[in-house]
């Protein structure tokens, strides 16, 4: 009995080894596996005969079983591995890798939105949050409260769009400053991106509607130095650490001191080129310390609170960053343009 079982194991495994060597799919391997170790296979059947083996032979038969199982696992593994390798080489060998990929849906953000989102992200990281206001504004919020003289040319109907009820289309995002300051007590730390309108005839660099982003920070003892460091950080984050900035004295009715804020030219790195009119600098934004009259207009005490404000044109930043030379392309919505962003 002992020898019969051992012989049957060895014979079956020899046959299995031959069959597995010939197998060329997973099903054939599986069939062999079932014939040997499956529920109704050889090994379970033989182990059922263990009770007929003489007690002194049982140890030897047990050892034969274990060795048989190990051998069987080895030849099964070898066959599986052989098949997998065959599959791997077989499948990849046949295709033209240079054919185009199947088109995948890919949305794109408008360059103006991209710049707005980038600016907002930079300023949010510096503790600002976004505030908004309506595009149809009162003359008070857009001009009067911002200390614009009653006969200032920007109020002219040749420059500003008006409505029959006396309101206007905001010419800047600055009225958002007024709305925020009137509705809450300092401290305030906001940016306000949004559409603005000026009565400019459209050409390559002018658009009757455009976007600005406004910043306002009001607190105790805010200084021009704080403004400078915020703008410097902004420049580095938006255009990279190689960009330097400078402030120049300027004039705006709603800030005092007022400055204009330049980036070193991102095209020529400050050496002078056509884009920067050989000056090495690009005019980016107007800024300054909020005029005491403006603080007074919204009911803040200029002796207690100070702050700065800045505003810049989104289209200009977009055109600089993406080297777009005509502002009208931004509003044409040709998909070949949109898909580039």
């Amino acid at each position: 009995m002992k020898n019969s079982i051992i012989n049957q194991i060895n014979t079956a495994l020899d046959a299995a080894e031959v069959n597995l060597a010939k197998a060329d799919n997973d099903q054939e391997i599986e069939a062999v596996r079932i014939a040997i170790v499956g529920r109704k296979g050889l090994f379970p059947a033989l182990s059922g005969e263990m009770k007929n083996v003489l007690p002194e032979d049982r140890k030897a038969v047990g050892i034969a079983f274990n060795q048989g199982k190990q051998r069987f696992q080895k030849i099964i593994d070898a066959a599986t591995e052989r098949l997998q390798q065959q599959d791997d080489t077989g499948e990849t060998a046949g295709i033209d890798l240079s054919l185009p990929g199947r088109q995948w849906q890919r949305g794109t953000k408008h360059p103006v939105s991209k710049i707005i989102d980038d600016c907002v992200a930079i300023f949010r990281r510096m503790g600002f949050i976004v505030a908004e206001g309506p595009e149809m504004e009162s003359v008070y919020n857009n001009f009067d409260a911002l200390n614009t003289p009653a006969d200032h040319p920007s109020r002219d109907p040749g420059d500003t769009f008006y409505f029959a009820d006396g309101r206007l289309l905001r010419t800047q995002t600055s009225p958002v400053q007024i709305r925020v300051m009137e509705s809450q007590e300092p401290p305030i730390r906001i940016v306000a991106p949004g559409r603005c309108f000026r009565r400019d005839t459209p050409d390559a660099t002018h658009s009757m509607n455009f976007h600005q982003i406004e910043g306002l920070y009001i607190d105790r003892q805010v200084s021009l130095a704080d403004l400078k460091s915020i703008l410097q950080t902004f420049a580095h984050e938006l255009f990279g650490p190689q960009v330097s900035i400078r402030l120049r004295p300027h004039f705006f009715p709603f800030t005092e001191p007022s400055v204009e804020y330049d980036f070193s030219c991102i095209m020529c790195k400050g050496k002078g080129c056509g884009v920067c009119k050989q000056s090495g600098w690009l005019e980016i934004a107007g800024a300054g310390m909020v005029d005491p009259q403006v603080l007074h207009n919204v009911g803040y005490d200029p002796a207690e609170w100070s702050g700065f404000a800045f505003g810049m044109g989104i289209e200009r930043l977009a055109m600089l960053r993406y080297r777009i030379n005509d502002i009208r392309f931004l509003y044409e919505n040709d998909v070949r343009f949109l898909e580039q962003f």
Binding site: T108, K109, E135, L169, F197, N333
Partner: peptide
């Protein structure tokens, strides 16, 4: 793809 149009 995001578009932007004039407000007028």
């Amino acid at each position: 793809n995001e578009c932007l149009h004039y407000s007028m």
